[in-house]
Design a binder for these strands. Structure first.
Lengths: 215, 215, 215, 215
DNA sequence: TATGAATGAGGGTTCATTCAT
DNA sequence: TATGAATGAACCCTCATTCAT
């Protein structure tokens, strides 16, 4: 199960919770669902599979959620909300372009660590989903995302921190993809911490993998 | 349609004949299917949608193919066969590690150009598919792929062409994913040729995006 | 193949035949079809299976026949026509009840020998078919059949050749079924000739299998 | 519906309870399915027809059963299990050959009375089914069946209870077929009880239908 | 909260049949 | 006469969803 408690809220709910033994059955189920969606794909995941993983019958899920789609929506919304909490903090910190890029990448790997399943789902499904009204928030998020990265890269080029000959859009795509695609192989609790992966990754992106010729 | 001209043959056929213009209704249909699979995802693609795109009824497809799955298999097999033709040529050319890496990346972007749809399908579906006996050839290909890249990177490190502090496996994953994920946004006939994209990408990977401090 | 040439006609056609090499492609195909119908059941037999056995494509059969059902009809009609040729000869011969019964049974086993496939089809399918207008001739045949047997049995009882305590209808059913069901295991050219099987069977039906107590 | 009361249990349940009157929606549905299979043939029976007879939609059947085929399997298994309960009791009772034969025949007609539909299905379909792994139990049953009958007949011949000139295999086939084929016309609740039919039948088989010549 | 049973809309597939060549 | 390709109806089955209990 995805044991990802929403950071700040979790404490609040723990306090106010009324039915003692039900701190958040809902989030528990969402975690389970996210896990299965990530592993098998949204379409290939039947409601019954989710229910099986949760130890209940398919129909029973509908007490908690309106539909399979609403589960997906909630999973993605929760993830993106948290992601933007992090990103906004970085973007509002008044850092230089290189430091911003480093912070964004590091924050991204942290989110992958926390929401691996949601990220994997996002990667695989968002392209089809954005077309639906219900998932318009994905498009909105993508726009903000693109803007944040592009402007950081452009600022870097302008300030001569990044190379002048970059095709900024192309670079943006490469960087974006490489970061998020990591969700497909990253396993939380493995040998690399998110921060370490970020460092390695940044080292490669910023300085390249080739040995520099010593003049 | 999949604008995949068979490299060398394309000229020959263009010269010789149009009357036998239906040598391969089969390939035509596979191209259509690949397009739809790539756009909507394999599971979400109904056989009827493919048939619609091909201007026929769903049942008619079964005159040409055994099943929806066999279409998928043939699409992926054809793509991988051609990919390995190209890779094997590169790997057998006796190049140094840096040149090998450059040639592999360039070849990869050429394959994306030729088999965009198949690559996109491969990216999205292969993880679920390898579990099935029928798609065991995907696992085999992945093994060879990993070996080719890892050994190239290791050779580069040993020959001091690549940085000594690389985490080779991590680097492999980054490079691999970034290259192939390009299939999700690449549009053949767009403003960037495969070779140009390869060049930009290699520049980033090899030398980094940061401006080098002049000591 | 069902090597059942229509007895008398075969010679006639052989004489009149115009396309030298096509004495009766039609009957050949019907024989093939009957074979497959008998082995797999009418419903489970696809037109393609018949065509495969005949070395042609499914669609090609429609040059020779209107439909799958018309093949079935022709198979059954041919069989019943011949059956009644034989039965009518027996019934019109003015035999006593016991001799009539013996002759009918013997004739039946001869038909099984000649039209094994058709008999097997008849056994399995006639019950469903009679409901259709097209196969009304099956019902007609059944009526005649029942009448022939019942009257023979009744005559036998009246003439004290058969036991007085017989339930004639029940006996009729037993005799009828046992005779025809033999088509399901009979193999032409096996160790028992039709006449020998008839003899054994008649011996059992007429005299019983128990040893008679000698008073 | 299949009016198949479980022999001994029927009284117990009749006494204890009606509220838990739905212990077996499953058996109810199987009875319905058996009825339709018997009447229309397995292949010609659509799942929808079964559902219609049961007053539900086709898809709903799949809540109770895995597939159409699994319904067939369960129907045949249930029938054969009960049949062998009866046969084994007879075979283990230490009767003489004639009494064994009488008891087997009587038991057979009782099973036809109880499982008419299943017997009819068995008759029509078992030949095609045995080829499938899933229905291997049919072949097993057939082997035991043959052995039981053949040995009884042989014992009878050896003990001079049955005629010495019998072709035992042929006799076995006649007896076997005549008994079971009765399922195609037998109607439970008709004018003949199973025991009466058995008596008539045995009288014919044992003593023949011909009047004995009084010496 | 959860179950058991059912719904209804498809989805992949089969197959008898048609028809231009 | 036969082929190759397609049609269209029907079939078995799946699955998200509903609802009385």
């Amino acid at each position: 199960m995805d044991s990802v408690p929403t950071k700040k809220k979790s404490q609040a709910t723990a306090v106010t919770a009324e039915p003692p033994a039900a701190p958040d059955r809902r989030s528990e189920l969402l975690g389970t669902a996210a896990e299965v969606f990530a592993e098998q794909g949204y379409n290939a995941t039947t409601v019954r599979k989710i229910a099986d993983h949760a130890g209940m019958l398919a129909g029973s899920l509908y007490y908690h959620f309106d539909s399979k789609e609403s589960m997906l929506e909630e999973i993605l919304r929760t993830f993106l909300d948290e992601l933007w909490d992090g990103y906004d903090a970085v973007l509002g910190a008044g850092l230089g372009p290189r430091e911003t890029l480093e912070a964004l990448v590091t924050e991204s790997f942290r989110e992958i660590d926390r929401h691996r399943a949601a990220v994997a789902i996002y990667q695989k499904e968002s392209k089809q989903l954005v077309a639906q009204e219900r998932f318009a928030f994905l498009a909105e998020s993508q726009r903000r995302f693109e803007k944040a990265w592009l402007s950081t890269l452009e600022r870097g080029v302008a300030e001569r921190v990044f190379r002048a000959d970059l095709d900024v859009r192309l670079t943006y795509r490469f960087v974006r993809d490489t970061v998020w695609v990591a969700a497909s192989w990253y396993r939380p609790g493995g040998q690399h911490s998110p921060e370490e992966i970020a460092r390695q990754y940044l080292s490669m992106v910023l300085d390249g993998i080739a040995v520099r010729e010593q003049p």
